[in-house]
Computed example of a mutant assay.
Amino acid sequence: MMVESELELLLLHALPLDGTMWAEQMELLPGATYAPTLYSFGDRIESWAEKVLSLTTAKRLVVVGCSVGGSCALEVAALAPDRVAALVLIGTKAWRRLDPVYHASALETLYEKGLEAAWCEFWKPLFANAALPGTIEKAKRITMRQPLEDVAQGVTVFHTRPSRDDILSSFPGPVVVVTGSEDVAPGLKTSRKHAKMAQYGRLHVIPDCGHYVSMEQPEAINSIIRQVLETA
């Protein structure tokens, strides 16, 4: 039986990675941190959020998400607004523009060219120019151990997720928006807009950093998350 705790930390990963992208964040709230791998949770982001919530009985949650993980964090807030104390959205776009051509192209690349080709085309370019080669190689290793079908399902979840501007603008707690200075997905303009849209939004721009902040600049994001936990 799960014992209810007061505060827990949920860390939700980006494509095409898994929960181990948060290796440097797992001790921010020792014994009360979850970094699940999301692919097995279904083919809809609503299902991902439901399964994430089932992992914890905490009265209050700080939910941190990167990219599609940030979209899942918004969905968690939609499902359990009374439990989510704060959101940290890294490289996240709250609204979704339908792009069936790009969706189909991404799946075609995965299935016809393979996971490594998709990594090189879609995800490796999201790292900053200054990212350490070892960091990029670690991310590639994480990617290459994912089943291709799981990554493809993640791509579909990303492209079929609902827009959640409504949750972003109505969420009653802190919304900390984080972007790398070199992130192009979604980039500084969108991140700044999201921080302004939230009732209690704050924007952090991490220098010399791309999309995968928790791996590229772990100390910077750790400091931000610690501040959120202290006031949650």
Rank of each mutant, 00 (worst) to 15 (best):
M2V: 13
E4V: 14
L7P: 11
L7W: 02
E8T: 06
L10V: 09
L12Q: 06
P16R: 02
P16L: 01
L17M: 07
L17C: 01
D18V: 02
G19R: 03
T20N: 13
M21R: 00
W22L: 09
A23Y: 08
E24G: 05
E27R: 06
P30D: 05
A32P: 05
A35D: 01
T37A: 03
F41K: 00
F41E: 06
F41W: 00
D43H: 07
E46M: 04
K51S: 12
S54E: 15
L55T: 09
T57P: 01
L61R: 13
V62I: 14
S67C: 14
S71Y: 10
C72S: 09
A73N: 06
A73T: 04
A73F: 05
L74S: 11
E75C: 01
A77R: 01
L79D: 06
L79R: 15
A80E: 13
D82T: 11
A85I: 09
V88Q: 14
L89C: 13
G91E: 10
A94I: 12
A94P: 15
R97W: 06
R97S: 09
D99Q: 12
D99S: 06
Y102E: 13
A104Q: 12
S105N: 09
L110Y: 11
L110W: 03
K113D: 04
K113P: 03
K124F: 01
A128Y: 01
N129W: 00
A131G: 04
A131S: 15
L132Q: 11
T135G: 09
K138H: 01
A139R: 08
A139F: 06
R141S: 03
T143H: 04
R145L: 00
Q146H: 14
Q146Y: 02
Q146T: 10
L148G: 00
D150L: 08
D150I: 07
H159Y: 13
T160G: 01
T160D: 07
R161I: 10
P162Y: 02
R164Y: 07
I167S: 10
I167M: 07
L168Y: 07
S169K: 11
G173C: 00
G173R: 04
S181D: 05
E182L: 02
D183H: 01
V184R: 08
A185L: 11
P186V: 07
R192P: 02
K193W: 02
H194Q: 13
A195S: 13
K196I: 02
K196T: 02
K196N: 04
A198L: 05
Y200M: 03
V205I: 14
I206E: 12
P207K: 04
C209K: 11
H211R: 09
Y212F: 15
M215A: 13
E216D: 15
Q217D: 07
P218I: 04
P218E: 07
E219G: 05
E219S: 08
A220W: 07
A220V: 12
N222E: 14
I225M: 13
I225V: 14
Q227I: 00
E230F: 02
E230Q: 12
